[in-house]
């Protein structure tokens, strides 16, 4: 068995999960088990479905054509069945990604689709659409001394005082070749995320020790002539509306959580953390100025 600590959960896995950082420190019963096994082709009497997934009660079936089927159950278990000729190694990205994200939704966690970094015990989350450069910006911040907290799946929990905190995802940051080159991180480049893909795991940066408090969520956007680069504050109503889209796989989340659960989670975030739009010009040549502007803005936020 491989043991990991992912997003605050003790995980025992039959599958080696490259990119997840082994953690044997916990002597408790695992919160989540991951194993190979038989998975049905389809879930009957589904409450909700998509072209390659069905949800029925506490079970969720995910299909990646020609690769594997994943059964995610009760927020406690992920069962993986490979399709013919598929390699286990290729399926692991979908275990740590979508499958684990769905499992967290089953547990009622508040999961952002984004990266998070911390400094002085305070964290920020960086959200945005796929391909906008969330992980790259997180890596650039870590190069400037921030600690790494999460990439892609960012779980917001609550501490004893009811304040939002960021759980470490217990994984390595993933970056594309281009970002690795531009950020001069070749020495940290680890294995490819998937064979023949030029996306790689990055050897760990400093990681957060204790879950830091969340002070802000920045939603990344490309700026252009029509929109000045800079950081925009949002009125609460706009912040709530925009945050709805920053949850991990928001349409599924909306089907899995009740309205009042979502409202309570939102209230916990907005009670302590603000949401900002981070409009920045695209391109690595602007990275330094974006990092500097972001650090300055973040530093000026009250504790």
């Amino acid at each position: 068995m491989h043991e990991y600590l992912i997003s605050g959960l003790a995980v025992a896995s039959e599958l080696d999960l490259p990119g997840a950082i082994p953690s044997c420190a916990h002597n408790k019963r695992p919160d989540v088990t991951i194993r190979r096994g038989t998975v049905p082709a389809i879930l009957e009497s589904a409450d909700a479905s998509g072209p390659n997934w069905e949800m029925a009660g506490e079970k969720f079936l995910l299909r990646v054509p020609r690769l594997a089927r994943f059964l995610i159950a009760q927020g406690q278990e992920i069962v993986v069945e490979l399709e013919a000729d598929a390699k286990e190694r290729d399926a692991t990205g979908f275990v740590l990604g979508t499958s684990f994200g769905i499992l967290l939704h089953q547990r009622g966690a508040l999961v952002l689709h984004g990266a998070a970094v911390a400094s002085d015990g305070r964290a920020i989350a960086i959200c945005g659409m796929s391909g906008t450069g969330k992980s790259t910006l997180a890596a650039a911040l870590c190069r400037k001394g921030c600690s790494f907290a999460a990439d892609d799946i960012c779980v917001i929990g609550l501490n004893g005082q009811g304040e939002p905190i960021v759980q470490s995802d217990g994984r390595q940051l993933k970056l594309w070749h281009e970002a690795i080159t531009e950020l001069n991180l070749r020495e940290r480049r680890g294995e490819a995320v998937r064979d023949t893909f030029q996306k790689y795991y990055i050897q760990p940066f400093d990681r957060i020790a204790e879950p830091p408090k969340l002070s802000a969520i920045y939603v990344l956007r490309d700026s252009h002539q029509a929109m000045q680069a800079g950081i925009e504050s949002l009125a609460l109503a706009d912040a709530m509306r925009i945050l709805e889209y920053q949850y991990y796989r928001p349409r599924v989340r909306a089907k899995m959580a009740t309205k009042s659960e979502m409202l309570l989670q939102g209230a916990a975030v907005f009670g302590h953390a603000k949401v900002f739009l981070l409009n920045r010009p695209r391109g690595f040549e602007h990275m330094e100025e974006t990092v500097a502007a972001l650090r300055k803005h973040w530093g000026a936020l009250g504790r």
């Binding site: 998509g50 072209p51 390659n52 997934w53 995910l62 990646v64 990205g93 979908f94 990604g97 979508t98 994200g101 769905i102 659409m129 796929s130 892609d152 594309w176 995320v193 998937r194 893909f197 996306k199 796989r249 928001p250 349409r251 599924v252």
Partner: peptide, 13 residues
């Protein structure tokens, strides 16, 4: 983004 929203999959993989 729409592809990922509908299929839930990480298209980068």
């Amino acid at each position: 983004d729409e592809f990922e929203a509908v299929t839930l999959l990480d298209s980068g993989l």
